[in-house]
Amino acid sequence: MNVSTEAKKNGGTNETVRVLFQALLIALFIRTILFQPFNIPSGSMKETLLIGDYLFVSKYSYGYSRFSLPLSPNLFSGRILASDPKRGDVAVFRNPRQEDTDFIKRIIGLPGDRIQMIDGVLQINGDAVPRERIDDFVSEEADGRRVPIPRYRETLPNGVSYTTLDMVENGFYDNTKVYVVPANHYFMMGDNRDNSTDSRVESAVGPVPFDNLIGRAEVIFFSLEEGKSAWQVWQWPWTVRWERIFKLVR
């Protein structure tokens, strides 16, 4: 091999490494500053989000805290470019009781709010949140059974409307004490009210500090039937939930 050929080979290798490095930096920038992908591992947000959904979360929606960075290094405190969350947002956050775990719930209570559940009806500052009984949600179980679950349309004081599930009448957290949301904290609840470990469970989650919010859920970019694996691409024609792709999270 002559010198000219060797030099071309080395130049090609260096160019490949440079391109890969630039691509990595761009991906890291997008993940840290703009959007981060998450997948849904549990049914606590049914029917808004289903097990097997993959979604993008906007990192810029609430500004940036240390939890916005990969590995969450303790480089600074508070938030940079902070913007207040809105009631009804679906948000990803670090569980304040277990800070290596990401949760996704809906923001129900703002700082200073009084939150309570009475007979399964959400109360905010002493007023019952309107909810309307609609058609059942049909859950497809692993054994093939189709189980109907009572479904409601709930509308928050700011007009945000979404559906909730009520799997169990008089469930454990259908009647609670009054929770007062501390300053700079938010009260998070799952839409699947009887199957959600959220701010009602003070020993496991409790009120969530503003700094623990990672971002707002925006859009589902991929979705697979529960129990199916994304790497089995040959099954996608039958296992992908095509109707959920590019569905906005509301």
Rank of each mutant, 00 (worst) to 15 (best):
L75S: 09
D194L: 12
S61H: 09
G206V: 06
E169A: 13
M188E: 10
V19E: 00
L71R: 05
D100T: 10
E226Y: 15
V90A: 11
F210S: 15
A230F: 04
V3Q: 13
E140V: 14
Q123W: 13
S4V: 14
P96T: 03
I214P: 00
T5W: 15
I214C: 00
L28M: 03
P207C: 14
T164W: 14
D135H: 05
S139P: 15
M167R: 15
M1G: 15
R250C: 06
L81Y: 14
V160M: 03
T164G: 07
I80N: 07
F103L: 13
W236Q: 09
N14Q: 15
P182V: 00
A27C: 01
P130M: 09
E218S: 02
W242I: 02
S72T: 14
D136H: 01
M1R: 07
F246G: 08
V90T: 03
Q98H: 13
T16H: 09
T101M: 13
V233G: 05
T16W: 14
L25A: 04
E202N: 15
P150Q: 01
W242K: 11
R241M: 15
K247T: 13
G78H: 07
N195S: 02
V233L: 06
A183C: 09
G52C: 09
R106D: 02
T163R: 13
N74Y: 08
I134W: 05
L24T: 02
R146M: 04
A27P: 04
I104F: 01
I104K: 03
Q123I: 04
W238V: 07
V205N: 00
T32W: 04
V17C: 04
L28E: 09
E169T: 10
E243D: 15
I134L: 11
L122D: 06
R244P: 11
A23T: 12
L55M: 12
E169D: 06
P182G: 01
V208E: 05
V90M: 09
V121I: 05
G11I: 13
N14T: 14
R250E: 06
I108G: 01
D198H: 05
S229M: 09
L81S: 13
